[in-house]
Design a protein around this nucleic acid. Structure first.
Lengths: 260, 260
DNA sequence: ATAAAATTCTTATATAATGATAATTTATAG
DNA sequence: CTATAAATTATCATTATATAAGAATTTTAT
């Protein structure tokens, strides 16, 4: 264990299910002497990446809230897309969850979400949540943007039930890529259906999607064209705003660099 | 520069105002050779604490969104308080911003907020934002819980306009501590007033506050008793829930430890 | 196709991390 | 209030890793 990994390994122990750890537990779990863990944990507490809780437990520190906020206010995708999620929700013909997601390492991560207050069901779509790569429209509208070697690598990490499944998946992906949008049913949460469009910005290295999730029970075929129209319109709007934000950033850096 | 500081110093460059940096800029700013920064940045990109953006710029990575989410779903204060903010907002006699804040190092940090949709003014109270220690009711209801040496240290970090100011501040703090709640006017944002109560949990090491912020123009004297009643009621409720969450955590750790 | 910029690689040297153990502080129970 | 256990910090010889200058390579822009 060396470099940043030393710290990352400790942070990675913390999860929703298990949000506080003692030094001894960390020590056991990482098979590292407790004197070493004590030293590292102390460093991270100083830096506010961890904080001591009750007993001898430690939990994630407030630094994450702080940096998360900075991302919220500055990340082009979040900045551009966040304000539209509510509008999209309000224009959809039936109650919905609306999600902005992006490729995150080898996973898809939700980076912003807006749920209609009338949407009762609990869903897997919440900001910060990692989503399965090959299930759900949200994810598909993302990986359908990827091709060649990169796609192959990503797909090989997944466990398909059979080779046939994999072939079908790739075929569907290809046809969805042509259409420019996609639809899935019950792949992530039972009883829910999802529609999604791709969002991308090459200059900013953004590979993302905008999606609306509905209750299957609420859905009628006549809703479909409205749903796609909304997603397409807002998808383009988000891309347009990402571009504007990109220009702003360019201008800002140009200014600050010429001052020096 | 050694240990975690090495990484923290780089992360600390990123702010709302300046959210992307090139390696060369970091290198200049930290007076460290670029070959070193390249190596460190690469490590952090692998760990997803940074990500490469367009040009040769880097920005904060998605790890912060992920860990922030874990805190959101597991931090006792956020878990206990978050659900009440909207209720509090709805029961207040006039439109308000409602804030849960806590001591964060030598600052006060907002950890959850709910703003009435009808509240038009932009405010400084947003999740993750660091608040000034000695201004505003939100902060005061926090530091009024601190005494002795600790208070002295905190206060000494602040620049008071005069010694008289400082004496007055400490006197007001003491009387507010006795009352159990506090009120300030326009100390953080012009035209806004704030009311706050303390929230604490010794076992969990939580020193926090619950506050409601209003437009001065909307406020009438007759609102005051309702505002205080709401804050007090919800403050106690939040503390009660923190306790329940604490018990849950205890039980969980007891179970998982006895399994092993 | 070329030049410039960005990034990675290589290396000897300096510096810091490790972990066993001891010392100290803090919490807990009687 | 004291005794005991638990948690945390300190010490230090050893080992491992980071550093930074410059060369080599890759990427990007023209």
């Amino acid at each position: 264990m060396s470099g940043f990994q030393r710290y990352k390994k400790i942070l990675d122990l913390f999860s929703e299910e298990r949000s506080s750890w003692t030094v001894l537990e960390i020590s056991k779990s990482l098979k590292t002497p407790s004197s070493t863990i004590y030293r590292i944990v102390r460093e991270m507490v100083t830096a506010e990446f961890l904080e001591s809780a009750s007993g001898s437990y430690f939990r994630l520190g407030p630094a994450f809230i702080k940096f998360n906020r900075i991302i919220n206010f500055s990340d082009p995708l979040v900045r551009a897309g966040q304000p539209f999620l509510k509008k999209l929700a309000n224009e959809n013909p039936i109650t919905s969850v609306n999600v902005l997601a992006r490729l995150y390492g080898n996973n898809v991560m939700c980076v912003a979400d807006y749920k209609n207050p009338t949407f009762k069901k609990n869903t897997s779509y919440q900001r910060g949540k990692l989503m399965p790569l090959i299930y759900g429209a949200t994810s598909r509208a993302i990986i359908m943007q990827i091709t060649g070697k990169r796609l192959e690598n990503l797909i090989n990490l997944e466990n398909f039930k059979s080779d046939e499944n994999k072939t079908n998946f790739l075929r569907d992906l290809k046809s969805d890529r042509k259409k420019g949008y996609c639809f899935t049913e019950g792949q992530v949460d039972k009883g829910l259906i999802g529609f999604a469009v791709s969002i991308s910005n090459k200059k900013l290295g953004i590979i993302a999607s905008l999606s609306s999730i509905f209750n299957l029970d609420d859905f009628l075929l006549e809703h479909e064209p409205i749903i796609y129209a909304n997603l397409t319109t807002y998808g383009l709007l988000v891309e347009k705003y990402i571009n504007e934000i990109f220009d702003d950033i360019q201008k800002y850096h140009h200014e600050t660099n010429s001052i020096r």
